[in-house]
Design a protein around this nucleic acid. Structure first.
Length: 551
DNA sequence: GCCGTTTTCGGCCCGACTGTTTTCAGTCG
C-alpha cells in the first residue's frame, strides 16, 4: 500500500512540473492537496475505502480520482505524462534558491537547457551574457546557487524542532535583552511547534530597525543574505535561515499572526476578511483606510468574528470554523502539569542530584516526581541507580513534592530486581519500546505510561500506541528519535488513549524536551483532561488558592 | 484544480526585496 507521504510527494512534484509548464493556479492546487495529505493522521486507503477523499481540504473530484488510481495501481498516468513532457533537470533548476518556474522555463525554452549541469556549462560559455534580464549580478547568484547545490545535494532539509530550539531561544533572549521596551517573538512553524522547521521567523518591535540588525550579531551567523529597511535574512553556520523583521508595536499582533501562519490558516482568514469587506496584512486589519486593529492577535481575530486560535492549531484543519462558534476548548498548558512521571538520573547520581531535582520540581510547583530507579537497557541488561541516590529517593517518599520510585520494564511487563524498597510504579523497557506504569500521586488506579519508542518514526509510533492500548496505558509524547509526535498524539487522543507530557525537569534552561513535548500535546488538540499528569484547571486553581492562603 | 451561510463561475494573499530596470518581473515567505 503506497504511503500518504509518497502520494503527497507525487502531488508536490506535479505542482512543480505544472509550474514549469506555465500553469497559473493548478500548481498551488496540487501543492495544497499535498500539504493536506501530509497532515492527515489516517491512511489515504482507509479514507478512500469510506469514499471520503473529497472531505480532505484541497482535494476535489479530479485529485480524488488521481488518489484512487494511485492507490489501486501504484502509478499515476497523469504524472508519468508530465514527467515525459518536462525534463527532470528543469524542475531541479526551478528549485534552486533565487530561481523559480519562470526562469527555469526560459532557460529550457529559449536556450534548450535541461538540467543544472547544462546550465553550469552555459554560464561558463558565456551564453547567458546576452540574454535579456540577466545581468552580471544575477548570473553570479545563479552560479553560487549551482555550486551550493552541488556541494550539498539534497539539502534544504527541514531541521527537527528540538535541534533548532536551543539556538532559537538564545537568539530571542539576546534580542529581548537589547531593549526592555521592545518585544521579540519567534513566529513561523517554530511557534506552531511543528515537528520540523524550515527557518526561523523572528519579529521584533522597534522604531530603529538598523540598531536591531546591528545588535543581531551572534557567532553562529554565517552570512547576511539581504538587509532592507524592515527585514534582514541571514544564514547560520549550521545552514538554518533566519528572517528578522522589525515592526511597529501597533502592528505587532498582525505581524505575529501573519508570520506564524500556517499559510492555509492565513488564506482562510483572508477569505473571511474579504467576505466582510475587510483586508488583513502584516500591518493590521482594515476596512478601507480605517484601521480596526493589529496590536494584538486577538484584535485581528475579533474583527473577523473569531475567537483567538492557539498557534499550535493553526493548520486549517477546522480550527477556523470552531473559532467562529466561540472560544476554543483550552489546550493543556504548563501550569496544568501536576507532576512528571518519567525522570532519569545519571547512574552515578548522589543525594545532591536528587535534591536538586526536587528543588526544580518545587520551583515548577509539581506535586509528584516519578524517578526511574531500575530498568533494562537497550540490550535487555538490568541496571539500577547507585545506592546513595536510591536510599535518598526511598527515604524522601511522601515529601513535597512526593517522590514516586519507578522501574522500567520490558514491553511484556518483565520487572527488574529492585533493591532498596518497593517501587511506587514501574516503567518497563523491553527491546526498542519501553513502558512505564505509575500512580499519578492521587487516589485511584495506577497509571501506566508507554515511553521510549523505537527510533523508526512511524513504526515506533504504531508499536508504542498498540502497547499502550493493550495495556490501557497512557503514552508519552515528545521530540527526538524515541518520539511520539503530534500526529501520533492526535491518533492516540482520537482513540481515547491518554497522553503523558514530560516536563523537562532537571534539564538546563534551553533544553527542548519540556516545551516541545507540551507543544506536541497541544498540537494534537489535547486539553488537561487528555493528559495523565495534568490536573483540571479547577484543581489547579484550588491548589493555587491553597498555596497562597498557606503563605 | 479547488471552492462557495450572500457564488456551481470567477475568483484564487499580498507585500518586501532584488536585479535590471526607465516602470517592472520574478522570487520569497
Amino acid at each position: 500500500m503506497p504511503s500518504n507521504a509518497e502520494a503527497a510527494e507525487i502531488f508536490r512534484n506535479i505542482g512543480d512540473l505544472l509550474d514549469v509548464l506555465g500553469e497559473r493556479f493548478k500548481p498551488e492546487a496540487y501543492r495544497r492537496a499535498a500539504r493536506s495529505i501530509d497532515s492527515l493522521t489516517e491512511d489515504l486507503g482507509r479514507i478512500a475505502a469510506r469514499d471520503e477523499l473529497d472531505t480532505i481540504p484541497g482535494v476535489g473530484e479530479a485529485i480524488a480520482e488521481k488518489i484512487r488510481e494511485y492507490l489501486a495501481t501504484g502509478h499515476l498516468a497523469y504524472y508519468d505524462r508530465l514527467k515525459k513532457e518536462v525534463p527532470p533537470g528543469v524542475a531541479e533548476i526551478m528549485r534552486l534558491p533565487g530561481l523559480g518556474p519562470k526562469t527555469a522555463r526560459r532557460f529550457w525554452v529559449e536556450l534548450g537547457i535541461e538540467g543544472p549541469a547544462e546550465l553550469e556549462a552555459a554560464i561558463a560559455a558565456g551564453r547567458l551574457d546576452s540574454v535579456k534580464g540577466f545581468g552580471p549580478r544575477k548570473i553570479e547568484l545563479i552560479r553560487d546557487a549551482l555550486a551550493a547545490a552541488r556541494a550539498t545535494p539534497g539539502r534544504s532539509a527541514r531541521l527537527p524542532i528540538e535541534t533548532a530550539y536551543p539556538l532559537a531561544e538564545r537568539i530571542v533572549r539576546a534580542l529581548r535583552e537589547r531593549s526592555a521596551r521592545d518585544r521579540a517573538e519567534i513566529a513561523g512553524s517554530f511557534r506552531r511547534r511543528r515537528e520540523t522547521v524550515g527557518d526561523l521567523d523572528i519579529l521584533v518591535t522597534s522604531d530603529e530597525s538598523e540598531k536591531v540588525f546591528d545588535a543581531f550579531s551572534l557567532p553562529e551567523i554565517g552570512e547576511v543574505k539581504m538587509r532592507g529597511p524592515t527585514k534582514e535574512t541571514c544564514v547560520l553556520t549550521n545552514g538554518l535561515q533566519v528572517d528578522l523583521r522589525v515592526v511597529e508595536p501597533k502592528e505587532f499582533g498582525a505581524a505575529l499572526l501573519y508570520f506564524t501562519g500556517s499559510k492555509d490558516h492565513n488564506v482562510h482568514l483572508r477569505t473571511i476578511a474579504k467576505d466582510r469587506g475587510l483586508k488583513i496584512n502584516e500591518y493590521g486589519i482594515f476596512r478601507g483606510d480605517e484601521r480596526l486593529g493589529g496590536a494584538t492577535e486577538e484584535e485581528v481575530y475579533a474583527a473577523l468574528g473569531l475567537a483567538w486560535v492557539p498557534p499550535e492549531l493553526r493548520e486549517n484543519r477546522g480550527e477556523v470554523e470552531a473559532a467562529a462558534k466561540g472560544p476554543l476548548p483550552p489546550l493543556v498548558d504548563a501550569p496544568d502539569l501536576r507532576g512528571d512521571l518519567h525522570v532519569h538520573l545519571p547512574p552515578s547520581a548522589g543525594t545532591a542530584e536528587v535534591d536538586r531535582l526536587l528543588a526544580d520540581a518545587r520551583r515548577r510547583d509539581l506535586a509528584y516526581v516519578g524517578v526511574v530507579i531500575a530498568g533494562f537497557d537497550a540490550e535487555g541488561h538490568p541496571w539500577t541507580l547507585g545506592s546513595p541516590a536510591l536510599r535518598r529517593i526511598v527515604a524522601l517518599g511522601d515529601g513535597n513534592p512526593r517522590v514516586l520510585p519507578c522501574v522500567e520494564t520490558t514491553p511484556e511487563g518483565k520487572v527488574p530486581l529492585t533493591p532498596g524498597g518497593t517501587p511506587e510504579y514501574a516503567i518497563a523497557r523491553a527491546g526498542p519500546s519501553e513502558e512505564s506504569r505509575g500512580s499519578d500521586g492521587a487516589k485511584g488506579p495506577p497509571v501506566r505510561v508507554v515511553a521510549h519508542l523505537s527510533g523508526d518514526g512511524d513504526a515506533g509510533g504504531r508499536a508504542g500506541l498498540a502497547i499502550a492500548r493493550a495495556a490501557k496505558a497512557a503514552i508519552e509524547v515528545g521530540p527526538g528519535t524515541e518520539r511520539f509526535d503530534s500526529n501520533w498524539a492526535r491518533v492516540a487522543r482520537e482513540s481515547g488513549t491518554a497522553l503523558s507530557v514530560p516536563t523537562g525537569l532537571g534539564a538546563p534552561p534551553d533544553d527542548p524536551l519540556g516545551p516541545i513535548a507540551l507543544g506536541f500535546a497541544r498540537r494534537s488538540g489535547a486539553g488537561a483532561a487528555d493528559v495523565v499528569n495534568a490536573g483540571s484547571p479547577s484543581a489547579r486553581e484550588a491548589r493555587k488558592r491553597r498555596s497562597t492562603s498557606s503563605r
